[in-house]
Structure formats: structure tokens, C-alpha cells
Design a protein around this nucleic acid. Structure first.
Length: 435
RNA sequence: GGCCGAGUGGCAGAAUGGUCAUGCAGAGGAUUGCAAAUCCUUGGACGUCGGUUCGAUUCCGGCCUCGGCCUCCA
């Protein structure tokens, strides 16, 4: 298994720190509103990575957090006149629904930030003790000059960061690049008591605290969107390496490219976003997943209305037809070996899908398992007839056709259609599928 | 300004140092009680200028164009 490591800018072998076990942390959603298709891409990509890791190693510990305390959440709750708890609970439920629709496997753990405040406070105390953080006007800030390696992930030098600063520097910062570990909460704002006063954690801290809590000092893979490289992941590295006195937080850093609309990033602030729910009335959620995997995860995915999803639909239909043609019994074959090796080579889903199309054209028996490995054709539609009953009706219809009793043949086809089963005659056989 | 990435046939979109993507559209054909669909064949491309090489769309460098990050962001 090989993966592109952002920190070294090259493809490297995945070799677990502890034998046979891979520990992976992926930055999850901030639950204040529905995820859009760009967010969904990240979770589908890392789900596919999770699947190939599960196949390639004995054990995989996969942690994906839920950010349920954040200024955006506070604002959204006020706007919607909801309690924070109510908003985050409902949004999280919608998120889980989306993951389920896209056939994203549940991670080993989905820790919530609010349930790890204690660990975060502990980290801050350590950082202050070690001289990497300071208290100023009720805020606790990380001192970026105290960490020589700051910016190692994004390759940003300290000077570049200053010259590029676009934002007013808060008065409580000793250095413009310092970032907040703890901020004070006023009035009825959400907050917790701490040695530094009533307040709440800065955004970057939770991932450091929770990844350490579940995966230890240094773990194998840390993932997220490309936009998280700086400052989020660089800040995580700074906090974790300083607090836990380790040279590196994770061995391999994996980042997925953006979903683009008209050559611009899909984002909530630009308003150019769609959600998977916007597509569900016209497209199967598995078609959405396929569309998201047809582009390599590190490349930008340009979402063209509607051709991107239409192409996925066409490919999906062709594979589905082949599956129907192969039949509904022959499903015990292993996943195609080429697909495994493509995925093991920096998660090359486009090549894997190309191979899947070829398997489909060849009507290969491994098609079903291979498609399922990519998270496709996992959802089974329920019908009242058993496979055997359907086959029996098809047989009766064949007999009727043999004696040119087309009336009876059409009657059977209509009967099955009413049950949700569609028959199609091909050159040498009759195939069926559930509508 | 700094760091990073992308530029492929009519459209969309992959892989790749020499031979195939694939989907839609186009052309020709096959199959068919009906329905629905499928299959086969075929044309057409690699931003630009150099370099490395027996050979580059693929590797390297310059240039042009576009995008991302440098503020919250998957």
C-alpha cells in the first residue's frame, strides 16, 4: 500500500508503526448545517481509503471527529433560535444519514469535541508549562515562534506568513501567527470552567487532543481536505509535537482535492454548493458516490451540471445491466486483484473504476464483489418474490414464447412488473432486475 | 508576493515513456413477436517553447492560462 504524503510531497509506502495495525484520523464535519457535495467527497474518499486499508492490514483504527463546539455553531444556533445542543444533535443525525446514503462505513470511533474538553484543557496546561503557550486577556494562545518546525506541512516560512497576512491582528497576540487554544465565553455563551477562566477551546485543539486520546503520540495516517493543510493541520502538528514531545504527529498526511464548480471551489460562503439531498430525487445515492470516485482524490473534481453525474449514471447503468445479465446467484467471487492493486497504489479510484467497466464488459463473475468493494451496489431493494420464484416465472414465460403464446408471455411480464421486477429479453437469455 | 496544483479528441473525463481509457454525441453494422435495451466496427487529442531519450501527452526546465491555500473551510 502506497500513499502520497503531503509532508514529503511524494508517494510513500504505508508501513504501520505497530505491526499489523493502521491508525488513521480524519477531520470530520462541524455540525451546524448540511454537508455539501464537496464535503461529501472527502468522506467518500477516506471511506474508500478505509476499505482498502481494512483489506490490506489486519486491523484499522479509524477515528473521525464531530466538531460540536465552534463559533459557526454558536452563530447558527442564534440565527435559527435553537439551542446549541439541539442544533448539533440534529445536524449530526443528518450527517450520519448522508454517510449512510453514500455507503460510507462507520469509523471505529466518532468522538465529539464537547466530550473531550478535559483532554484539551490538559493539553493547554502542558503547553503553558513547557513555554509553548501564554495567557493574554483571557485567551490562551499558542506561541508559534516557540516551535522551530512551525509550517512544516504547508512549507510556509514564517516570513511568508507575515507578508501574506490579510487579517487584522488581534491585540492579544504576541505574534501575528499565534493562534487561539482557549477563548473566553461571555454571558450565556457555551463554555466550560478551566484554569484559564470560563471559556471554550479553539478549533485546532480538538483534533490534537482526540487523536492523541484514541491513537497515541504518533499515528499512521492523518487526513482531510486540502484546505485544511494550513493553518489547521500545521497548527495541530505544532500543538501535538510540543505537548507530547514527539518529532511528528502522524507519519503520512493525506489530503483530498476540492470539488469545483465553474473552476471555483464549492463552498458555503460562495453559495455555489449543492447537497446530496438536492440530487436524490433524480439520482441514486450510489451514482453520487461513483461520480465522486471517478476523479483521483488529489485532483480537483470539476462538477459540471449535469454531465458529471450523467456520466456516472451511464456507467452505473451499464454495470448494473451486466450484473443483471450475470445473474443474481453468482456472487461469491473475490474482488478483482487489479482493482485491489490500483487502490493500493495511492488510492487510484479512476483506474479501479476503469477496470470495473472492463469487468462489466467481460461479464466477469468478480464484478459484483468488486463493485461492492467500491461501495456500489450495496443497497438491496426489497421485493416480495424470491429469486427462485422469479426464475420460475421466467421459465414459464420462456415456455409460452416457445409455442408463440405471446399473450401469456406478456401477461407474465406485466405481472412481474407489478411486483417491481423488470424483464428484458436479450439475445440468449432473459434478464431481470428490481425497478 | 509566497507555497501548491491543473491545462487531454465536439463535450466530459482517466491512465500512461513506445500499444486500449471510458461515457455522451457522430458514422456504419448486428440483434429484435412486442417491450426495453444491448453488442460490434469506426474517425478524432494530449496549452506553449526547449531539454533528456532510440522514442514523450507521459520525465525535466522556461513561458502562457486557470485554480487552491496564505481568514472560516472537506
Amino acid at each position: 500500500m502506497r500513499l502520497y504524503n503531503t509532508i514529503h510531497k511524494k508517494i510513500e509506502p504505508v508501513s504501520p508503526i505497530e505491526p499489523d495495525i493502521i491508525k488513521m484520523y480524519v477531520c470530520g464535519p462541524t455540525v451546524y448545517g448540511d454537508i455539501h457535495l464537496g464535503n461529501a467527497r472527502a468522506f467518500v474518499v477516506f471511506d474508500q481509503l478505509y476499505r482498502i486499508l481494512l483489506h490490506s492490514f489486519k486491523r484499522v483504527l479509524y477515528v473521525r471527529n464531530i466538531t460540536d463546539v465552534d463559533d459557526k455553531i454558536i452563530h447558527a444556533a442564534k440565527e435559527k433560535h435553537m439551542s446549541i445542543d439541539d442544533l448539533t444533535t440534529k445536524t449530526n443525525a443528518r450527517f450520519q444519514e448522508a454517510m449512510d446514503l453514500l455507503n460510507v462505513l462507520p469509523p471505529t470511533v466518532q468522538p465529539k469535541a464537547t466530550q473531550h474538553i478535559e483532554q484539551m484543557i490538559h493539553m493547554i496546561v502542558t503547553l503553558i508549562e513547557k513555554g509553548h503557550a501564554y495567557v493574554e486577556q483571557g485567551h490562551v494562545l499558542f506561541s508559534t515562534p516557540s516551535y522551530d518546525n512551525y509550517g512544516c506541512l504547508s512549507q510556509k516560512s514564517l516570513d511568508d506568513l507575515i507578508s501574506g497576512a490579510r487579517v487584522e491582528v488581534a491585540p492579544y497576540k504576541k505574534d501575528p501567527r499565534d493562534f487561539v487554544l482557549w477563548k473566553p465565553s461571555q454571558g450565556d455563551d457555551i463554555g466550560w470552567d478551566s484554569p484559564f477562566g470560563f471559556g471554550r477551546p479553539g478549533w485546532h485543539l480538538e483534533c490534537s487532543a482526540m487523536s492523541h486520546h484514541y491513537l497515541g503520540n504518533t499515528f499512521d495516517i492523518h487526513g482531510g481536505g486540502i484546505d485544511l493543510i494550513f493553518p489547521h493541520h500545521d497548527n495541530e502538528i505544532a500543538q501535538s509535537c510540543c505537548a507530547f514531545s514527539v518529532p511528528q504527529m502522524a507519519s503520512i498526511w493525506v489530503h483530498n482535492g476540492h470539488l469545483m464548480v465553474n473552476h471555483q471551489k464549492m463552498s458555503k460562503s460562495l453559495g455555489n454548493f449543492i447537497t446530496i439531498w438536492d440530487l436524490l430525487d433524480r439520482y441514486d445515492c450510489e451514482v453520487i458516490r461513483l461520480a465522486l470516485l471517478m476523479t483521483h482524490y488529489r485532483h480537483p473534481l470539476n462538477w459540471q451540471y449535469e454531465s458529471t453525474i450523467e456520466q456516472a449514471q451511464n456507467i452505473y447503468d451499464k454495470i448494473k445491466r451486466s450484473l443483471d445479465y450475470i445473474g443474481h446467484a453468482n456472487k461469491d467471487e473475490d474482488v478483482d486483484a487489479d482493482i485491489i492493486s490500483y487502490l493500493q497504489d495511492d488510492l487510484n479510484t479512476p483506474l479501479a473504476i476503469q477496470r470495473l467497466i472492463h469487468l462489466s464488459q467481460e461479464k466477469a463473475p468478480s464484478l459484483f464483489k468488486s463493485a461492492q468493494f467500491l461501495g456500489l451496489f450495496c443497497k438491496k431493494k426489497v421485493i416480495s418474490l424470491s429469486d427462485q420464484e422469479i426464475e420460475s416465472w421466467i421459465h414459464k414465460r420462456k415456455d409460452a414464447k416457445m409455442v408463440k403464446n405471446f399473450q401469456e408471455a406478456d401477461r407474465i411480464r406485466t405481472f412481474l412488473k407489478d411486483q417491481g421486477v423488470i424483464l428484458e429479453d436479450t439475445k440468449d437469455q432473459t434478464i431481470w432486475y428490481v425497478s
